[in-house]
């Protein structure tokens, strides 16, 4: 574990979230650790099925049955300075409910389905404010208008009574952000909030989130599969694959000098690393969650797979020069292995 310089806002340690399915136990999150400092933006990156969304839901206490947080710690520093272990409190307890929406806000991928279609946006924003801040109807309304204005929602006061289906995708996501931030939480969890939006709207929303982060002084955990987004906003990056952290560290390091073959593969999907003008997808598909390969989870798709080692022994997540960590046999001595045995593409 990396020694934090100051007490972090959130410290996730060896988090494990498992799903009991008819086919067997699915270890969606299997020993994930990372920290989020105050006012910091941490991006969790990975393909579908990497467990990044389940990690976000675990923090928020929103894992649905048959899933359950089965182990680890999630130490979260509350507004009053005390620290709670989110993994130790039942998700439907009053303690957790007092944290959800007040200390931690969350926005989701699909702004349309994340809002109730038959309730006005005003009603949906106000209820959190009334619940956590004890405001009356009128005060909550004012606060909701404030929140909408902060997220750049035009004509907020007049449009409190509109329904989500009357708004564009970008405006709906702004409503979601206003709703999540109405009680000014110290941590915002954003689960792929821009994936369902078009490129221009995507950029506007990212810009808005960064501005609000500055204004409200909050930390953001941003879940995405898009490394382009990561480059724009991340302070630190956690790369996940099959429920485990493959590589973590400062954004500049991960993007500039990716160490794990998986991170490099992800980068090749968005940037022309070889300089031959080609973008490359990672070959193969993410293994079935019930059929985890022995050894390194990425070994079935890795271009630098070392037979006899990678497909038999699981690598440890090891610290490499201070803040960076990587889970790969290539780096198991802290130094890159000479990759003579690596198989050609």
């Amino acid at each position: 574990m990396r020694a934090p310089t100051a007490a972090p806002l959130l410290e996730v340690d060896n988090l494990r979230t498992h799903f009991t399915t008819p086919g067997g136990l699915v270890k969606s999150v299997d020993g994930v650790s990372f920290t989020v400092g105050h006012q910091e933006t941490v991006c969790i990156v990975g393909e579908s099925g990497s467990g990044k969304s389940i990690t976000a839901r675990s923090i928020m206490g929103l894992v649905r049955r048959p899933g359950r947080v089965v182990g680890g710690r999630m130490n979260f520093r509350l507004r009053d300075g005390s620290t709670v272990d989110l993994a130790a409190i039942p998700p439907d307890s009053a303690t957790y409910r007092a944290i959800r929406g007040r200390e931690i806000g969350m926005i989701f991928q699909e702004p349309m389905s994340a809002l109730s279609p038959v309730h006005t946006i005003g009603s949906q924003i106000e209820e959190g404010i009334r619940l956590h801040l004890g405001f009356g109807a009128r005060a909550a309304r004012e606060r909701a208008v404030d929140a909408l204005e902060k997220v750049g929602f035009p004509g907020a006061r007049q449009r409190l009574n509109t329904y989500p289906f009357q708004l564009s995708g970008g405006l709906r996501q702004r409503v979601c952000i206003a709703m999540a931030l109405a009680c000014e939480p110290s941590l915002l969890i954003a689960d792929e909030p821009t994936t369902a939006l078009d490129v221009t709207t995507q950029a506007n929303i990212l810009e808005l989130l960064l501005r609000l982060q500055g204004e409200l002084g909050m930390a953001i955990v941003f879940i995405t599969h898009d490394l382009g987004v990561v480059a724009e906003i991340a302070d630190r990056v956690v790369v996940m694959y099959l429920g485990q952290v493959m590589e973590a560290g400062p954004a500049s390091g991960i993007l500039g000098h990716p160490r794990h073959p998986y991170t490099r593969g992800l980068l090749r999907c968005v940037a022309d690393i070889e300089g031959d003008g080609l973008l490359r997808a990672i070959p193969g598909i993410v293994p079935h969650p019930l059929a985890r390969p022995p050894g390194c989870p990425f070994s079935t798709r890795c271009e630098e797979m070392m037979p006899g080692l990678c497909d038999t022994t699981a690598p440890e997540l090891l610290a490499i020069n201070g803040e960076s960590r990587v889970r790969c046999h290539l780096w198991s001595s802290g130094q890159p292995h000479v990759t003579e045995g690596a198989v050609h593409g």
Partner: peptide
Amino acid sequence: DTARAKGLT
């Protein structure tokens, strides 16, 4: 989930 994330019972 959105409603849960708001802290409602």
